[in-house]
Design a protein around this nucleic acid. Sequence first.
DNA 1: AAATTGTACAACCGCCACACC
DNA 2: GGGTGTGGCGGTTGTACAATT
Length: 305
Amino acid sequence: MGRPPCCDKIGVKKGPWTPEEDITLVTYIQEHGPGNWRFVPTNTGLSRCSKSCRLRWTNYLRPGIKRGNFTDQEERKIVHLQELLGNRWAAIASYLPQRTDNDIKNYWNTHLKKKLIDFPTNQDGASTSSSSSDATTGAKGQWERKLRTNVFMAKQALTDALSLDKKSTTSWQHAPHITPTAPINHQPELPLMQPRSLNTTNYALSAENIARMLPNWEKNSSKSPQTSSDSINTSNLQFQSHPTSEGLKNYNNSEVSETTSLLQDESKPDMESLGFLEKCLFDDTVAEGYDRFMNMSLEEADALF
DNA sequence: AAATTGTACAACCGCCACACC
DNA sequence: GGGTGTGGCGGTTGTACAATT
């Protein structure tokens, strides 16, 4: 028998989150930290199911999420990682700090998939072209990639295991008593926020917005920067019941604060301890190295691990 | 200017893995 | 070892907005 849904359908609100709901959720997480999602709706009074709360936090409210404007480098990484890992968006997201799996998934479905269909052979070097342009070598290429992926995953698991102690030093200051469990939370908490679009009228929201709504948010994060945008007077905000209010429009148009270098430095992986592939992925300057990896023979690739 | 079509993305749904009892 | 609850993940949908006719 199938399990009942995580929350009964009656009385559970659906659809876009309002600023008020976001504030409520963020305020609660500020005090209690993320986790124990099942208690969040009852403790906050939100008419949302626990899953919805977790998703909202994970994908949009938590610090360190960058939205929109994927760079070429990020695009290349996504394409390569998708080829390596398949549609394992959470795993791919773990190599793209500041991006959520949902964001990457959406970007793939709306942009990259189409691009690859339009330009299947010259997308990203030999690895793609070799598999798509030659049917006879295609099967072998797939087999090799599969094997390589297995090796890669084993390596990743090892790296993750070895870096467990390092994760405990990440900037989870606002919830030090709770260790993030989601893979994406293993990534740096970079308060670099970007609105969905500078001219959007959506309440696309960003944690920066929430940060502005909540003066204590910055206060509680000892390493957060004090930028000019922080001086925005929250009393000027006039939230309306609908997300597309003018107040929020102004929000999204306001200056985007800079990244906290401290947080970034702190949470960036220790490059010394990373393997060849990880270095390729994290360091934009060695993207060619990644291509080299993809073009290596299986034996050569294995030797790296 | 209005209607239609296309695009982007936030959010939901259902399944699965894991932890706990 | 089996049952149950929770969190996580990937696929998919709904909807707002933009572009085109």
